[in-house]
Each structure stands twice: as C-alpha cells, then as structure tokens.
Design a protein around this nucleic acid. Structure first.
Lengths: 166, 166
DNA sequence: TGCGGTTATCTTAATGACTAAGATAACTTT
DNA sequence: AAAGTTATCTTAGTCATTAAGATAACCGCA
C-alpha cells in the first residue's frame, strides 16, 4: 500500500518484537520498583507517596490518597509509618485545620534517590548514544503511551465504552 | 564536540523530557497493572502468575515462586485461590511426585487478555504510524532498557558493586 | 536394600497493609 | 446558629504474605 511493500514481513516482525519488548519492560519496571522499595524498607505505596512529595514539595493527606489510590485510612497509617521513619513531616494547615499538610524532609530526599542512581547513570549513557531526532522520537512515543494508559485507566474505572475506532 | 553544537540546548532539554516521560510512563504502567488486577478480582501477584503461565504453558510451584518473588507458602495459597477461581489446574508431577505442575486453563486465557485489548489496539495503531526504522529503534531501546533493569536488579539484590564506568 | 542428604511443596501462626464504615472536627452557607 | 459539606482519623476486620518448620519424594552411595 505504502512504500516498502517488500519489507512488510520485516516490519511485521519488528512490530511484534516491539510489542513483546514493551510488555517485558513494563513488567521489569514493576519488579524493579518492588526491589527498590524493599531495599529502602518501604512498601511500594510508601515509595509512590515519597516520590510524589519530592515532586510537589507538599501535599495534603487527601491529595496523597488520591495519587496513591489508597483510602484516607490507609494514608493515615502510611503517614504514621513515614513520620516514624523520619521521611516526612506532617502538620495541620493553620488556614484550614481539618487539613494535614505533608512535606518530605529534604535531608532524606537524597537517600531515596540513591537506589535509582545506578539506573539513572546507565540510562543517561544509553540516551547519550542517540541523536536529537531519536531522543525526540522516544520522548514523543512515551508521551503517547502515557496518554494511552490514562485513556485506558479511565475506561477501566468508569464504564467501558470500548475504544471506538471509527 | 560532535556535530550540531548549536543544538546542544535543544538536545539537553529533549533528554530531560525523555527521562521524565520514561519515569511517568513506568509509573502509569504500574497503576494500569493494578487497575487490571482489580478489575479481574485478582491481586497483582495472581496476574503475574497467570501471565507467566500463559507464556510457558506449564510451570512448577517452585518456578512460580521464583518468578513472582513470593515464598513457596504464598504460592501455595495463591494456587488455591486460582484453582478455586478456575483459572488454573494443578497436579503432581508423576515423574517427581514432590513437584506440583500448574497449567493455565486455556478456556480462561482469553478472559485474562480482555482488559488489555483496548490498550493493545491503541498500541498497535500508534506503532502503525511508525516506519520500520523507527520501530526498530524503539524495540532496540526497549531491549537495552530491559538489560539495564536486569543489571540493576542484580546489583540491588546481590551486593552493590557500584555500576563501574571506567 | 536402605540410609543420609537434598529438594519441592505444604502447613501453621503471625504480621501488616489495606478497606469499609462511621466518628470527629472544621469550614461554609444561609 | 443550624445544616450541610469537607478532610481526616479511628476501629474492626480482611487477606496476602512471610518465616519456620513439617512432610514427602528423589538421589547417590555403601
């Protein structure tokens, strides 16, 4: 149909490779995250929470519950854990005293990054072997994958209006 | 240093974009997996086990324990769950009667694929927009990322001989 | 053949994160 | 000030998981 008809088999097999590699990478990224959490003596939820706090600097318990897909009750005990371990400071919002404002203790932030350092270094080396176009292709691809995940999550949670193509 | 010096800032920002997008995608893939498991009324470990069985056709309890990073005790009760739910058949190996051989019931396999179907369809559409070179770049990238994950997992679990660069 | 050592799984008890339901406290509107 | 809403906490119970050890089966060797 398009150019390169004679390469269709190669293309089909490349696509199959890509799909398989994508699934396997997704699985490994999850195993990796579990391993990091275990190494830090945390649960994956704890790690998720701390990563979130590193991003946003401070959040309320309710925001954390939403982000981590936990109930507020679970967040309460998670925050107790994380406070006890000294990762986090929690205090009531003076402006709205129902709210609990949680912040990551900055002196502990580096400690959370440490297990990722080896990975980050390797990733950087890998990416430095790419030219700008390749980097942009990858980033654009990741962004599109993100959009897909979000759309599918929406579909899974609210009804499932079947990804309409037409 | 190399060609395209004047594009260095664009390149640096593209790299930053890629790293950020990669992290976010990894996070979303995990959230997605949790959502799928929840929709099927399974734990993530159950899903991992069933995906594994779909790959290998049959495995012993011990192999499943290794693959899922669970203790054999946890695998025992997981298998009870999965048998009860009819996903899996488990029987002793006649050749070595200590072993329990587990197989996925083929008639239930499709059911497990269903939640992924929307995602798979979208992914296929996305990939069909790429040319062969792009697909191969992506697949190669994924393969390298897999290798990185495996190397880092090794480092995390056995000592940590610090990813030597020099 | 039978004995020691090893392997593979299962059992049991305890742990701990999580959920659901509802209580408490604080803010907002009228 | 009362009613309604919002944000978090409490409590009780569930369930996957772990750790330790029991059980059963295999293998090699005397």
């Amino acid at each position: 149909m398009i150019a390169g008809m004679s390469h269709e088999p190669a293309r089909a097999s490349a696509i199959a490779d890509l799909m398989r590699a994508g699934r396997e990478m997704s699985r490994l990224s999850m195993v990796f995250r579990y391993a990091i959490a275990e190494q830090l003596g945390l649960t994956v939820s704890d790690l998720e929470c701390l990563d979130y706090l590193a991003d946003v600097e401070s959040a309320t318990a309710g925001q954390i519950a939403e982000r981590t897909n936990l109930t507020t009750g679970a967040v309460t005990s998670m925050l107790r854990r994380l406070q006890q371990a000294g990762y986090v400071r929690a205090e009531r919002d003076p402006a709205d005293r129902r709210r609990v404002i949680v912040t990551l203790r900055p002196e502990r932030a580096a400690e959370l990054e440490r297990p990722y350092e080896g990975f980050a270094k390797r990733a950087k080396q890998l990416i430095e072997g790419y030219n700008v176009d390749e980097v942009m292709l990858l980033a654009r691809h990741y962004d599109r994958m993100q959009a897909m995940y979000l759309a599918e999550l929406d579909r899974l949670r609210n009804g499932l209006p079947e990804a309409g193509v037409a």
